[in-house]
Write a protein that binds this DNA or RNA. Structure first.
Lengths: 104, 104
DNA sequence: ACTATGTTTCTAGTATAATAGAAATAAGGT
DNA sequence: ACCTTATTTCTATTATACTAGAAACATAGT
């Protein structure tokens, strides 16, 4: 998954899909937004789908892709676990607070 | 950075260095622990160093590598920011709680 | 059935990355 | 100065990934 997110075109796709979450976007819109040729885009979407970072569903003749936030959450949890339980070097609160100053 | 962590040998290195945090490890110990030939290991360590995920310091004739937890924290913060501020789809607390059930 | 549109698969070229043996460099001990 | 140990750089090979045009496939409308 990190390898998948490590490629710039795919990180751009993920960020775009997160902007459009939870509705997601159809391929054509992603394509015109990012300016990536169809076949190249399809290849990247395929990779993101394989590792589970995105979900796909048909909508008439369009394919709608959306970010799989459960999987993203697992990735974040894994990284946290590595950092915290292995080394206690990172303070989760300092990061969590960045996102939700209103809850808690 | 995600690309760097996305390669399996390098993820193994990072996990090992996090286990040994904050002391870190000298190259020879990493090598015997992971069973990676010296030149290959050196190549991977170089990459991790370039993206800032590890720090190096000389210690007599050894080179000691250690995980750069500040940079890791920034990476986590970036991911959180993408997920939370773009989509509000991820609950930071659910992850933060995995690590520190005693603080807060 | 035919046409139009959206998306993928096929194919191939190019670039980047992983691997590791051998030689070179660095630091330390005698 | 020389030898030993630690690590890197050099070099080359092999494998994998990125890119994208063209053709194929899927769905919808007429």
């Amino acid at each position: 998954m990190m390898s998948a997110m490590g490629a710039e075109p795919r990180l751009r796709i993920m960020r775009l899909l997160l902007s459009a979450h939870p509705e997601g976007m159809v391929v054509g819109d992603i394509q015109s937004e990012l300016g990536i040729p169809g076949s190249t885009l399809s290849h990247h979407l395929e990779k993101l789908k394989i590792v589970g970072l995105v979900n796909v569903s048909r909508e008439r003749q369009f394919l709608r892709y959306s970010a799989n936030t459960d999987v993203l959450q697992n990735l974040l949890a894994f990284l946290f676990d590595e950092c915290c339980s292995r080394s206690s070097a990172i303070k989760p609160q300092s990061i969590a607070n960045l996102c939700k100053p209103d809850t808690d």
